[in-house]
């Protein structure tokens, strides 16, 4: 047994090295070196490996090259700061703030957050995390379980509502999700909750009927509560590649996405697709998901994001 253990630990050490070689720190590569064409190529490779995409990468790299040729950017160490500045400009604070309902004629209206995404992107877990975040900021929360399609989805959210001690409105499996959304809005108004978070079934953005169903859910919510949904969050898997762009485009067409939740950033994936999404659709990232527990949610911070993108393995 002891021998076996030894072998295993040696293997995993070896793996860690491979990982570092694959996705290791750009910062350490850049440190102390003068910027030259080779280094710029290296930066380009790292950006592509982070899923930033060819087009956006070229744009970022071109700006580095321009500054380098102009003589304003000469040290490797300054490159990350240069990128940070650029990305911060892409994601101004105002864009990342959350919209809440304003009281209408002195009456309180619930804030509605609609959550959507493709299958397996992490919607239900993200809903739980959002609920937890809202609850911790002193707001009352109601969950709307509108994923009536996937087997066990409603049950999954129910378990979360138990664990987080928040109320839930659910429909029958196979029932009309728009009807559940309507009921959830009703309940939110009647109970006077602060925030209603609606979970929807995962769907591929290529499936027209399902995308129309999503539009219907949004419309039903808007009709029941004027001004709602206040936030429409698209959950994006951080491991996803350039298809993220297509997802963002199609979901925006269906339900006017207001922000991304970048889920599963706790792996080795760098989530660079979010940059490509921002570049082409202007949808900001609002949250990031970093693990399996409801506490593993953070408000998006572009500076930390770019730092992590080029950081060492933890």
């Amino acid at each position: 047994m002891a021998v076996f253990k030894n072998v295993v630990s040696r293997i995993s050490k070896g793996l860690r090295r491979t990982r570092e070689a694959l996705t290791g720190s750009l910062r350490s590569v850049l440190a102390g070196r003068a910027l030259d064409e080779d280094l710029i190529k290296e930066i380009e490779a790292r950006l592509i490996q982070a899923d930033v995409g060819v087009k956006t990468t070229r744009k970022l790299v071109d700006s580095i090259r321009t500054d380098w040729k102009a003589g304003t950017l000469t040290r490797g160490d300054d490159v990350i700061d240069h990128l940070k500045l650029q990305l911060k400009a892409m994601w101004p604070d105002a864009d990342r703030s959350l919209q809440f309902a304003t009281p209408e004629n002195g009456e309180k209206t619930p804030t509605v957050i609609l959550v959507a995404g493709i299958n397996g992107s992490g919607k239900t877990t993200s809903v739980a995390k959002l609920a937890n975040l809202m609850r911790k900021s002193g707001r009352t929360v109601l969950l709307g379980a509108c994923d009536t399609f996937r087997a066990g989805a409603v049950k999954q959210l129910e378990i979360w509502s138990d664990r987080l001690d928040v109320d839930i409105v659910r429909g029958q499996e196979g029932g009309d999700p728009a009807a559940v959304a309507f009921d959830a809005c009703d309940a939110a108004v009647a109970r006077g909750v602060d925030v209603l978070i609606i979970d929807t079934a995962g769907r591929l953005h290529t499936q027209d009927p399902l995308m129309r169903q999503l539009t219907k859910i949004r419309d039903v919510v808007a009709r029941r509560i004027p001004g709602a949904p206040h936030e429409v969050i698209l959950v994006l898997d951080a491991t996803s590649g350039q298809n993220a762009l297509r997802q963002a485009e199609e979901f925006t067409r269906a339900i006017d996405v207001t922000g991304l939740m970048l889920a599963k950033l706790d792996g080795t994936a760098r989530g660079g697709a979010a940059i490509a999404v921002r570049e082409s659709t202007e949808i900001p990232v609002k949250f990031i998901g970093l693990g399996e527990t409801p506490d593993d949610i953070e408000l998006f911070d572009p500076e930390a994001f770019i730092e992590a993108m080029f950081a060492d393995e933890g």
Partner: peptide, 30 residues
């Protein structure tokens, strides 16, 4: 739909378990 990171995770699973085959899901997307 996985991006560049596909190789990192696949490699790790493979080295630990010796994967015999891959099932590629959500292939009906674009």
């Amino acid at each position: 739909m996985t991006g560049q990171d596909a190789v990192n995770s696949a490699k790790e699973f493979h080295e630990r378990l010796h994967v015999d085959g891959v099932i590629l899901t959500k292939f009906d997307s674009d």
